[in-house]
């Protein structure tokens, strides 16, 4: 692929997807951090683990998850450690999907998604297939960024000389040809 096409891909795909996905995760994290108690209750409501025995894990997850989203979101927007950040987002989305399906499949559980704290994006707050589809859609850009990374406008590009370990060969200045 020529360098020109890579620039076009970077401007039209990688950068908007990075910023969009990163911004969404920062937004989600911010809302959760503003209501940690509600988020803890939401996690408990999913009934993935026994709240009586593993309540401390739920509380720990309620504090950790928003910060993981925040860090991944910031890294994605900056284009720093893009593949790792996108992989973190991918894993979180996969985990959310599994938890959502667990709730949907169990008729006795009625839980709130709390995906964006107390705000709703596209779907209602109550867990349903809408949230599963939404997260599946978000997996697409996350997968793309894991595959193609941040592009020319990412900080990874700036620091490529120091962190070329897992970068694809075409990001090396090799005359614009992908290796």
């Amino acid at each position: 692929m020529s360098k020109g096409k890579l620039w076009v891909e970077s401007i039209l795909l990688q950068t908007p997807l990075r910023v969009g996905l990163g911004g969404l995760f920062i937004f989600a994290a911010y809302n959760k951090l503003n209501g940690i108690q509600s988020f803890a209750y939401a996690i408990k409501g999913f009934q993935v683990v026994d709240a009586d025995r593993y309540g401390h894990l739920i509380i720990m997850a309620a504090h950790m998850m928003p910060w993981a989203e925040m860090i991944a979101g910031v890294l994605l927007i900056l284009g720093l450690w893009t593949r790792a950040a996108a992989a973190a987002v991918w894993l979180m989305l996969a985990g959310f999907i599994a938890a959502l399906i667990h709730v949907i499949m169990d008729d006795l559980i009625s839980a709130d998604c709390s995906c964006f704290g107390d705000m709703n994006l596209i779907c209602d707050a109550t867990v349903g297939w809408c949230q599963v589809v939404r997260n599946l859609v978000l997996l697409i850009p996350a997968s793309y960024l894991v595959w193609r990374q941040g592009g020319f406008l990412a900080l990874d590009r700036v620091y490529r000389d120091k962190s070329m370990d897992d970068a694809p060969e075409w990001t090396v200045d090799n005359g614009g040809e992908q290796g």
Binding site: L33, I36, M60, H63, M64, M65, P66, W67, A68, M70, I71, A72, L75, W81, R83, A84, A85, A87, A88, L91, K162, S163, M164, D165, D166
Partner: peptide, 22 residues
């Protein structure tokens, strides 16, 4: 040089530290 899995762990570690502090 850090590879992607190490960076992933670093992100998780950072979230753990920030979450604990929080």
């Amino acid at each position: 040089r850090m590879k992607t899995p190490q960076r992933l762990l670093a992100i998780v570690g950072g979230a753990f530290l920030l979450g604990t502090g929080h």
